[in-house]
Amino acid sequence: MKKEINFTLNGNPVKIEVMPNEKLLDVLRDRLGVKSPKHGCGRGECGACSVLLNGKSIRSCITLAIEVDGQEITTLEGLEKNGMTELQKSFLQHNSFQCGFCAPGMTITATELLNKNPHPDEEEVREAIAGNLCRCTGYQNIIDAILDVSKKE
């Protein structure tokens, strides 16, 4: 019942056999060793597992691996291929995260936002990251860091 799929992962071609019910998150983490997307709920509710599918953020815990056949997947590992992004540098300077568990998912979502809308206002930032739960920070330092990037250039 296994099916071979081909997709681009962080710019590199991947060929792998998957079961039809295998979740993308599990394939990325357990079979391909890409550990930045995290398992927080497994139900699409927390955003910790967010990755980019052709540039659009999705929840990899509720996405079947077979669905990404022929598509392009980007995780944090891909975003920082050429060094930390401006957004990551800003997160660092703002001490944006505490436990850090939500950071990869949050970074994916914020990256998507800044790609679509390079100069969002505060409410647009809040709106964009509202699906990424963070239990530690109260979000303020995350939002400030994103807004800082949006003010640059």
């Binding site: 550990k35 930045s36 990551q88 997160f91 944006s96 995260f97 850090g100 568990f101 970074t107």
Partner: peptide, 21 residues
Amino acid sequence: AVRIDGLEKITGAAKYTDDLD
């Protein structure tokens, strides 16, 4: 100061238990 675990966490390098092989 920038927190000393900041870089690891922001780059996704920080290992949580489920990330160990």
